[in-house]
Nucleic acid binder design. Structure first.
Lengths: 187, 187
DNA sequence: ACCTGAACACCGTTCAAGT
DNA sequence: ACCTGAACACCGTTCAAGT
């Protein structure tokens, strides 16, 4: 896995070949296949090892939004370095996102007062947004009329948009004190 | 391109092979390469033809948020049918998003009162979120603790989160009447 | 101008054979 | 148990040769 990560860092996921990995390890192709059944499995292991580095900031880092945002920025940073891995992770989120991180985030949102449904929606949206950014990389800029600016601050602003939208739900839910959390009174 | 779309519909992007496409067209492999230089180029053409079907709902469809949401739902519907295309589109957004759609959305947001920067942030976030959802497909559910529910309503709720967050910026900008649009008074 | 068919340089994966 | 090296069935891409 470490060797695979080194290769991806250098030449991207597309350049990570079972043959190249075997070379990097100094073994024959068959040896690699003895330890990992398939390239897909290898990438899952790589994905897990990347996510294992991500941690949710503690309560001292701020409110729920700041903590969640911190984790997401962390994800984007780790994933963004490894060209092409984001698209794979995106298509295999459930195999790759560690249960602990997931549970911690759920807990933070629950403590903040989110109902389970809104929590799920927010987590899904965050996951998709972050993976989307990481997979989409640089060339949105022209698709969006932003030529000079750096992408990273934009990424954080987009995150804020999402988090602010969620905060609305939270406040709306509190005001009405009810089970429904939407802006609209339709049910 | 039509033949390519048929194949993707049936077996996904991974199953779209230059050989298979040639078979579908009843020609030799070389003939296909005479008309399209590369598989990448072919996929760009497919992507454009998909996006060409998406249209921004008119003013009668509601406010800016409803219209933008409509377009995004449309994108997700078209892209979602073609397995694996989302990841490609995501990585090639600028080659594939039609300038007219892009300009129309910019106009709608501008008319709604968004400054150019916030507009760009929102468009980027929407694009990434929608592509993320389309590329991520089904298996987020377990990563997010949602087992029974359909994904499509969740997709729309996530969209609402983003749009609501943007609406906040709009209102905040109006109240302060100033150039800055954030929640925070820093800067 | 447009097409054919074979070739080239890769892939992921398998597997008999070795130690 | 772990590894080698060759093979198989694919790819995308190119290109001389045909019409």
């Amino acid at each position: 896995v470490a060797a695979a990560r080194r290769i991806i860092l250098e030449v991207g996921v597309k350049g990570l070949t079972m043959r190249r990995l075997s070379d990097e390890l100094g073994v024959a192709l068959g040896a690699t296949y003895y330890h990992v059944a398939t390239r897909h499995d290898l990438l899952v292991l790589v994905g897990r090892s990347l996510f294992a580095e991500v941690e949710l900031p503690g309560a001292e880092a701020g409110d729920w939004a700041a903590r969640v945002k911190g984790a997401m920025v962390h994800v984007a940073a780790v994933v963004g370095q490894h060209d092409g891995i984001a698209a794979f992770l995106l298509a295999n989120l459930d195999e790759v996102v560690p249960k602990e991180l997931q549970q911690e985030m759920l807990d933070v949102l629950h403590e903040a007062g989110f109902d389970p449904h809104t929590t799920a929606v927010l987590m899904m949206a965050l996951l998709f947004y972050v993976s989307g950014v990481s997979a989409g990389g640089q060339d949105v800029r022209s698709a969006v009329m932003l030529h000079g600016e750096d992408l990273e601050p934009l990424f954080e602003e987009g995150l804020d948009l999402l988090l602010d939208g969620a905060r609305n739900r939270l406040n709306a839910g509190r005001r009405s004190g009810g089970r429904r959390s939407g802006w609209f009174s339709s049910d």
